[in-house]
Design a protein around this nucleic acid. Sequence first.
DNA 1: CTGAAAGCGCTAACAT
DNA 2: ATGTTAGCGCTTTCAG
Lengths: 352, 352
Amino acid sequence: MPHTRRQAVTIKHVAAEAGVSLQTVSRVINNEPNVRPQVQERVHAAVAKLGYVPSLAARRLGGSRSYLILALNDRDRTIDGWRSGEGTDWVDQMLLGGMLKCAEHGYRMIFELVDTHSAHVEREIMAALSSLRPDGVILTPPHGDNPTITELLTRQHIPFARIGSVGDGAGFSISMDDAHAAEVATAHLIALGHRRVGFITGSDEYALSGARLEGWRKAMRAAGRDDSEELIGRGDFTFDSGIAAATALVSLADPATAIVASNDQMALAALHVAEARGLAVPRDLSIVSFDNTPVARFSVPPLTAIAQPIAAMTARAAELLIEAKQGKPDPDAPSVLPFELVVRASTGPCDG
Amino acid sequence: MPHTRRQAVTIKHVAAEAGVSLQTVSRVINNEPNVRPQVQERVHAAVAKLGYVPSLAARRLGGSRSYLILALNDRDRTIDGWRSGEGTDWVDQMLLGGMLKCAEHGYRMIFELVDTHSAHVEREIMAALSSLRPDGVILTPPHGDNPTITELLTRQHIPFARIGSVGDGAGFSISMDDAHAAEVATAHLIALGHRRVGFITGSDEYALSGARLEGWRKAMRAAGRDDSEELIGRGDFTFDSGIAAATALVSLADPATAIVASNDQMALAALHVAEARGLAVPRDLSIVSFDNTPVARFSVPPLTAIAQPIAAMTARAAELLIEAKQGKPDPDAPSVLPFELVVRASTGPCDG
DNA sequence: CTGAAAGCGCTAACAT
DNA sequence: ATGTTAGCGCTTTCAG
């Protein structure tokens, strides 16, 4: 095995080639001021000629930046999604938005799974922070709502972005308007003539669950419809909880003719309940879901759904974190990105 | 902004706490010999007490290992998959297998997109190598079959693994038995009574495309069936190419009653052609696909498919690369991992 | 079995 | 506007 310890071409080689000092090369590659255009030119030429690319490790060790953004996802949920092979593409959309945005700025995104529920969250995260020293951290739901995590990051003075977490507090809040999305979904059903629109909530562990419920309430009230508790099914994002909630909603004395489910899995459960009960979708029961994961388009019928801008949110998160390290002032408002209601075949006029 | 340059707890602190030299701590955390159990004990205690975790950057800079495995995927194909939102979960399965295996060994997997077709592949890859100095590289199809890439890595003396690339040559070859899988898929159809089984190939850019075709041939011949050119549709993994190929196969004077498609997209195209022609699936046309991405289970009818062990292959790749750095001898045979034929509703008895 | 010294490639702080 | 110096936190030599 050859000596792989030494790097082929280092800043020294570039400095020699351009006939300047190390420092000047460093200044040029970091776009710092106080270098004459002519010297810049020469350095750039040397860089190109030698194919020089700075060592991430050396930059991190010598300087105050690591050029690393750490994305933290929930371990169990993520692994379950992967194992199921059902195409929950949260991670893919994050990579699409986050990795590409990082690359634009010469940063890299590193992906890590941590267990929100574990007593060792702190230790797990501290280990990642110590090892990597990332310039910023992206928290995905439900991590952004976990005070143990946000406080740890605050204490460590590491900038972080909370995706899908709407409360204010430390860190950038990046979300879509969940309440408004639920309102739009519900209004869509009301406009189709539905009077009894049920709602299936997500897990309380997620702040957005409450926001979505509020949106449904607002739309129902605005239309003068009943928004009493019996129309609210308590779910936790799992298929099974969707079955229970949907069953209750269609079993009411005055049953729901439409359901808004807080994610695709629970909407699929509603579809399943409809079939078991001999209810045609959308004729007898209309369904709208949240998330718009790939299954939404392949179910029978395909689901009308609220699409979350996951890629856009992650890209924005990366951007804010990178700018924060560059000393740009924080934005004065939370970033709220546009969602989309994708209308498919699971919603139709009320038959009742 | 506080001074974030200094690490909270370094090897020095551990050494002081344990009353030994830096070196001894280093030996202990790297499981090197020549440390008395008693001293090890003390060091471990100090590590635990202080919550010490070594800095990746410093390890890479000081030593000869980076504890980084770089996974290289095809840029266009990957981004298209993400944007389409159709749930191609190649990347997820890679992360499932690769990230978790890396984590087991204290390594990290970094994910990077490079454009196989670009004239700048070399530059793109060299940039990643210079910046990261990974201990190993995982090439996914079609990178493993691209000599520009494999030669570059060989020249740089960086261990690499080729996933889904069967030729021998430098680097670990990790694959499933594509030929045998095609044979099993074809035999499944023959056993159902099909005589005219068509085959839709993948792009020639992928070595596995040829292997799959050979498997089909072998099964057809073994059963005494016609394996002439007219039963072979040339595809390139795209939906459109699948439409053309499937159309030709069902339009033969003696039409195919079953089709093996080299991926799910082309199988969906065959499904589409069947519907347009008024052919019921599986009654009039049976279809088997390769890949078993999430769409395969959500199509109507769901597709019988060959499932690739992507997670297992990536895990194996990571394992071999890590062992290579640790000086373990290379395995004498390529790693061939088991595939699975998942039987769903798109295949049935021949009606002809 | 253990320790001391040197240096990895870069940036920060301080000259000039 | 540029160069010099001193580390960053670790591993690799080399001495004991």
